[in-house]
Computed example of a mutant assay.
Amino acid sequence: MLWEEVRETHLNKWVVIEAIDAYSDNNYRIIHDIAVIDYFDDSMEAFHRHSELHKQNPNRELYFFHTSRKKLDVEEIKWTGLSKI
């Protein structure tokens, strides 16, 4: 599914999505194909669902966005700090 289709299908919602087809280019993730996992009216509900799914499987490429956003411009941030020791 394309972001435009997600926006049309879930008007004014917070959506938890998984990137199915994505690649990196100039420090941005370019996401072509999306699966909608869940959708909410409240941002905190979307955040909690995203966190829950990420804990279950940290290798999935999950995001949450509001569908008022016209473009998915996901900037990649390189983590250089320490994780849990």
Rank of each mutant, 00 (worst) to 15 (best):
L53T: 09
I30K: 01
H50Q: 09
I77L: 13
I77P: 02
P58T: 08
N12Q: 06
I30Q: 03
M44A: 07
N57W: 12
K78W: 10
I20L: 14
A19C: 07
R29Y: 06
W14S: 00
V36P: 02
T9K: 15
D25M: 06
N57K: 11
T67R: 01
D42G: 05
S68Y: 11
F64C: 11
L2N: 15
N59W: 10
I31D: 04
E76W: 09
L53K: 12
W79Q: 03
S83Y: 08
F64D: 04
K78I: 13
K70S: 10
I17P: 00
K70R: 11
D33S: 10
D41L: 08
I31V: 10
L53G: 10
W14V: 00
L82P: 01
R49A: 03
T67V: 04
I34Y: 02
E18A: 13
D33T: 10
Y23W: 06
E8T: 12
I77Y: 11
D73E: 15
E18L: 09
F40H: 09
N57R: 10
K71T: 15
L53M: 15
I30Y: 03
R29V: 01
S43W: 13
Y63E: 07
P58N: 12
L72M: 15
L53P: 05
R60P: 13
N27M: 11
F65G: 05
K13M: 02
A22H: 03
E45T: 06
D25H: 04
Y39F: 14
T9R: 11
T67A: 00
E76P: 01
E52F: 07
W14M: 01
P58L: 13
A35P: 09
E61Y: 08
H50K: 07
M1N: 14
K78Y: 13
M1I: 12
W79K: 01
T9Q: 11
R49Y: 09
